[in-house]
Amino acid sequence: MLIALFGAIESGVIYAIMALGVYLSFRVLDFPDLTVDGSFVTGAGITAMLIVDGTPPVMATIIGAFAGFIAGCITGLLHTKGKINALLSGILMMIALYSINLRFMGRPTISLLNETTLLSQLESAWAMTGIDTGITGLLTALGADRVPSTWGILILMAILTIAIKYLLDFFLKTEVGLAIRATGDNQKMIRSLSANTNFLIIVGIGLSNGLVALSGALVAQHGGFANSNMGIGMIVIGLASVIIGEALFGKKTIARVTLAVIGGAIIYRIVVTLALRADYLNLESSDLKLITAVLVIIALITPKILQARREKKRRQAKRNALMKRKEGEASA
């Protein structure tokens, strides 16, 4: 159980980078960008292909992320210059990327099991610090019988994800970042304040897909393979993370939301793992997409129901107070 939860948190932290990308397009730019399903694979596929070809893993990862950035820019171009509806631009790009990714990859699945990846490099560097032995010793002393083989990936990936979060927080408060946020909030207004909204949308969607592709590149290296189908439903997973995060942790400030999105991504993984492991539910891994859809629906509906109930209670309390006052006046 501990191992399963650990695995869920570990991948949650990596998928959180993708969720931050989805947050940037979906929430900040108010742009429902479906490119994500394709650009996730672009990052994974190109990085895997390059690693197999002998490119240093760090370079391969950066190139993979950059390829996602380019894909996003093209979606932005289709929407702004081509005047194609946002949803449709994303769908077109997603479909086009499916073929493009296969072209790059050369085959539907690339295995990385016997390759040196960025994550395996980090893992061996981590092993030299000897922190694992310490944590394992501590956990065993606390009574855990099976412990994760390494904490390095979790901790290093968490550091990377948090660093990206802080960079994103900073960026969204810069002059350019403010203009990007305003583009999603009131385009007419920011254009009247001399911001080139077309450019900002292109760059924003580009950055969003760059993060998604980076996440894809890391997921491929973590899982040990890249597959041309691994991106299917990724946008919904991203949305699930954003929506669950916002519902649970609030969205008062930018820094709060980005943290919430990371939390949402981790919680999503935990819930999915628990659901799949719950024998009485009798779920199989092919039910994953259904679980995701149900999760998003719950996260969307629950806050509204709670809000409605709170309102109802508040009104009832006021009504009771009024009745009491009237009774008091009648008896007086």
Binding site: F170, F171, K173, T174, E175, V176, G177, L178, A179, R181, A182, D185, N186, M189, I190, L193, S194, A195
Partner: peptide, 26 residues
């Protein structure tokens, strides 16, 4: 004005109108 942004952020965007927008805090 941009409704989901704060008063100071809105003013910062207007302040940048006649300048080049940079990667420095608004």
């Amino acid at each position: 004005t941009a409704p989901s942004m704060t008063i100071e952020e809105n003013l910062a965007m207007a302040y940048a109108r006649d300048k080049k927008r940079r990667l420095v805090p608004g």
